[in-house]
Design a binder for these strands. Structure first.
Lengths: 192, 192, 192, 192
DNA sequence: GATGAATGAGTGTTCATTCAT
DNA sequence: CATGAATGAACACTCATTCAT
């Protein structure tokens, strides 16, 4: 990639990062480009120099989540027992959501599925989890009333459910704790 | 209640009902008051005669859900075994969501919690479910690692999670089936 | 037509009329809706209450021209000798252009032909003129090297050419005189 | 002229030439400087190095027309009979308009007269034509009801009228043929 | 000379809300 | 009670132009 393009991308990321705190307080759609720009300390023109449409910012935001999972979560969970790994993944998710401001988590749970796909998030996530569930079934630890794929779907559904609920409650409770409590039930529900 | 007030309320309900089909196809926020009014066959002025703000319409919409639960669900589930009742409640929820148009279910799962409270939904729901969980614990069927209140919360969280996911997927899968599958896991997770 | 609709249309016309003086000084496309509205003494919202798009104003403007021709020109030229009638029509055209402000004439000569058709202008005009040329040929006064239709086209081409030129020169010369001079040549060119 | 200036001018012309194809498809005003620059393969900065304002490009474009007439048309028409030369000039004009893309011809006929003057187009053209008309009158071939200057004006008015009409019709008809037909009438109108 | 990031006033358009009739 | 004309701030987005590198 050329130096120029690289610089462009870096600037893009800078803007995205600068915008995140703002995203924390107001739903993305209710955020005007003007507000975004003053928050990021750039002009409207500059914004549109780096993003074609307002919604492109959102895609960029999602890409960051992907990056995070890719860099910080997956490597640490490559090995170990199945149930602790599933518990840990859920915890990492909760931590991420908690750390990266409320509204970013609203984003995670509010983006149209099609967009989610575009950002590649689903796939990397799904493949990773299917692997774990498959292993669990092979080791006789997890019910095989469901396929690894279906388990993955239901697991993500639980994760997203909590994320959504938490952000809908404007982060008024401890999401890590709630996630742990919920996962206890859920994992018990699939264990043999 | 005075005759006048009654008539007011009736007219309000008429407007709400007239608007529901429209809500089915477009997200509430993207619906202009003008559109709402032509759909309902009333003038903008009339709308503002019956509703103070556009968002009041939404509150009214939610109240209808409450009414539905009150009239059709609770009575049928007053008695019986605990787990089947919890399963049945979840099914009723799914059926309601499925029947009452996609977008209305989006509403259910998208309204700010504060509004939800206003509509009283939570309370009636919560009281009803806490009763069931309490009974289950007394009968030694359900774990007592959690209070009835917490179980209710986690249960509703699961319900809402599925509702949200389904509407986010634009109703592309069978919500009743998914709900059943998910509840199997969840109820197994809290059973002794 | 209902009283309501009538009133709507009247108001529309009022706005159009109020805007004409402004149109006189700046090309339509370079005129912002804001400017139009302050000129007409209405709010932007009102403008969009009466016109769906900015360009609808233009269509309305053209309709007025049509009306004018229909009401003032055609009736006076229903009968008489061919060449004087053609001369008179050109004069009326020039007078209209002159009286109705410079920019309105710019409009006449700047509208996309498709729009012109929409407004029906072409048709009524063309039918009227074809009749005259046909009569002239039957009376042996006009060359029949061209069909009435082609003569009409070339005649209108001449008219529009002058209109355009005059408005492009910002009305700096006497258009009636120029029209007369030009028509002398043109009509001599088609006479036998 | 200094070497530097010369190089500047050459670069200017290169840019203009590079832009012409683009001008062919979109009206000049709807063309952003950015688009122009990517089409020309230069940076915005460079553009503003060679042109003070966007509209200067247009002036340059017009100058090219002048050059063309100067180099290709006038020399070929220096001598010969008056009427054929007038016919030929009109044909050359039509051919030029036809060849040099629709939009360029729109330019020719849409530029503010003041700009036209600036480019000097009028003068060279006018002098040339006045000469021909004068000769025609002296030879007793052309009416002397009009001065050579007025004849020139009316002649150019005809030319421009057709050009404008053709480009307004987006080049949907054969301009050379139309020009010939029209000139037949017009020249017959001034002949003795 | 050349670059392209940065600017910000400006665009057409929408829409919740008010209020005179 | 009902109407719909009127409002104007707000919106996403554009673009000619400047200027530091």
């Amino acid at each position: 990639m050329s130096k120029v393009k690289e610089k462009q991308l870096r600037r893009r990321s800078e803007i995205i990062e600068a915008v995140i705190p703002l995203i924390g307080s107001v739903p993305f759609e209710q955020l005007s480009v003007n507000e975004i720009c003053s928050a990021a300390g750039i002009s409207v023109g500059s914004f549109y120099h780096y993003f074609e449409k307002k919604s492109d910012l959102l895609v960029g935001l999602l890409a960051l989540i992907d990056e995070y999972l890719e860099e910080n979560v997956y490597p640490a969970l490559r090995e170990g027992e199945v149930l602790p790994r599933l518990r840990a993944f859920a915890q990492e998710w909760a931590i991420y959501v908690e750390n990266h401001s409320l509204e970013r988590s609203k984003l995670i749970s509010s983006v149209e599925p099609s967009n989610t796909d575009l950002s590649g998030q689903k796939r990397s996530c799904v493949i990773f989890l299917e692997g774990i569930f498959g292993q669990g079934q092979r080791e006789g630890l997890i019910t095989d009333s469901y396929s690894p794929h279906e388990l993955t779907e239901l697991y993500l559904l639980a994760l997203r459910g909590i994320t959504t609920d938490w952000s809908r409650n404007n982060g008024r409770y401890n999401i890590r704790e709630k996630m742990a409590r919920y996962m206890d039930i859920w994992l018990r529900g699939i264990s043999l």
